[in-house]
Write a protein that binds this DNA or RNA. Structure first.
Lengths: 333, 333
DNA sequence: GTGAAAGCGCTAACAT
DNA sequence: ATGTTAGCGCTTTCAC
């Protein structure tokens, strides 16, 4: 920048003004500076400018998701990026893989990099560490899961309501033995979905059957197959998550039962409509969640100090076939 | 940091040494400093340290992909992140959406943020701008597509070879009217895949039929349907990309032809094995591509100055059913 | 082994 | 409208 100033025959400060587009500079000087910038290939150094600046914004936010490679996280990421782009903000990303230690490490790392704020899908049991790692005043918005020990806005799907609707849907088709297949129950989303299941099942006076701790598609497939080795197998399944839904589909296929066991899955997935039968789902809206989270974060960064909000994003039941298979009398009701 | 020094009764420099883990500090002082750091909630400022440091590394790389929300990009992203994590490096991401201007803007932005290097899936016709935007010595590795006007390593799937194999596979099942459905032909990947198609079709003495410029799944579905309104419709389709494959599946379904028209798609996609018929694909290995790109980039950052390399990643033909439908005599050969 | 001084590239506050 | 000076938080260099 010094070189540019010398080459343009102006002071350092004038160069700074031109680079920052401040209006109070003589057009002729602007031209001279511009030319010098171009000929010297000058590139402003954001790190240095942010060091001295008053507002101390880096124009960077951190986004910590379960796994940037999975469709849900990827959709959230994309929506966040779009909001950020509109404000000239860039996004540092990280995958947590259900590892609380990694959650904390990355939060700390992004804090040291002076991210202006964080969007976090928490995996650990407690987010109290954020108060220590983050400089005071750096906002965090939680997405998809709730946080403990740290206050911030959160953006959540209406998990319990969606699950409840799924189960009522199955009940309406005559089902009375409906199994819930869920993943790790320490995750708040899973707990909410199970709660919705239990509510609806209880309200209808049915017995609850749950299988949990299913961590992937393979486990879900195995669990599904085992269900039908029992004396009184279910007539309908409600799966708490994407990978579990797919595992259940594979399991039912393998058993040749996909056309007579009903299935509703939580969370939509690509091609669900092309399977046979097409899979009925409770669709979340990950893009809406990402958008809402980013908007909330930017509002906080811009100084919004209202009470922390909990933003719920609606789910939609999309009937496609698998959830509309009526119960069949199997002789062992 | 000053406060910490004062509170610990040592000099600024000693704090710096402790924070950076330099070994030449008295253990007793280390303890005092550590305590002060904790009690004052001191957090080191990476931006400031990098400003003064000799190597000037920020420990950040930029990753510019087509769309962080699509499965291919997301898988690349995840693989890059894993490599970066192993080195304590963080990843700034951006989606380009086939917009060359955005490509340049983001490259510039990441340069101003002093990313140590860039991984780029180029969309523009020319990457010459990189020489202007990037400080000399900042390496770029290209992934998925080739670049023009700027030298760097590139990581590419064996597109032509894979496409060629797909077509030979169809020919082996007796097909002679095989249509290629492709997207925008200015994209190098598409051109390579078409080239592979043309090679195999030409070698077998068959006529080439191509439909191009299909920018999404809906366009591909419409194009597929139109094909079968012709006098001599194809007996097999080769689709150049994920979304086009899915559009073609939808099209064939709508026509009720999915069990008698053969289909091979380039690029695998989740649930391809659960469709009926299951979809035969030329699978790429996006994780391997991301890994290779990241490894190449880090090698360059660490000073590797060998000739730029072109790393090809193999594709695999996965026969699942749709590609093994033999030709049927339709009376209009 | 420890500290004092200088300065990385830039902008704030105050001249002019 | 432009320039000057000081200093952001840290690491370097060099002295102790």
């Amino acid at each position: 920048m010094n070189d540019v100033a010398r080459s343009a025959g102006v002071s350092l400060k004038t160069v700074s003004r031109v680079v920052n587009g401040e209006p109070t500079v003589d057009p002729a000087l602007v031209e001279r500076v511009r030319a010098a910038v171009a000929s010297l290939h000058y590139r402003p150094h954001l790190g240095a400018s942010m060091l001295r600046r008053k507002d101390r914004r880096t124009g960077t936010i951190g986004l910590l998701l379960e796994d940037v490679g999975n469709p849900f996280s990827a959709a959230v990421h994309r929506a966040v990026e779009d909001e950020a782009r509109a404000r000239g903000v860039h996004v540092l990303t990280g995958s947590l893989d259900d590892d609380p230690e990694r959650e904390r490490d990355l939060a700390r790392a992004f804090a040291r990099r002076h991210a202006d704020g964080l969007i976090l899908a928490p995996v650990g049991p407690d987010q109290g560490y954020l108060a220590l790692e983050l400089p005071p005043g750096v906002p965090v918005v939680f997405v998809d899961r709730t946080a403990t020990g740290f206050t911030g806005d959160s953006v959540l799907a209406r998990n319990a309501a969606g699950a409840s609707a799924a189960v009522r849907h199955l009940i309406a088709y005559g089902h009375r033995r409906i199994v819930f297949l869920g993943d790790l129950s320490r995750i708040t989303t899973t707990r909410e979905r199970r709660r919705g299941y239990l509510d609806s099942v209880g309200a209808a006076g049915l017995r609850a059957y749950t299988v949990e701790g299913l961590h992937d598609s393979v486990a879900a497939e195995a669990a599904t197959r085992e269900l039908f080795e029992r004396a009184r197998p279910p007539t309908a399944l409600f799966t708490g998550q994407n990978l579990i839904t797919i595992g259940a589909v594979r399991g039912l296929r393998a058993l040749g039962r996909h056309h007579d066991v009903a299935l509703v899955g939580f969370d939509d997935f690509p091609l669900a409509d092309l399977l046979e039968p097409a899979v009925t789902v409770i669709a979340q809206d990950p893009a809406a969640m990402g958008r809402a989270a980013a908007q909330a974060l930017f509002a906080r960064i811009d100084g919004d100090t209202k009470e922390p909000r909990e933003i719920s994003v609606a789910t939609t039941l999309i009937p496609r076939g698998s959830g509309e298979i009526p119960v069949r009398f199997t002789g062992s009701s």
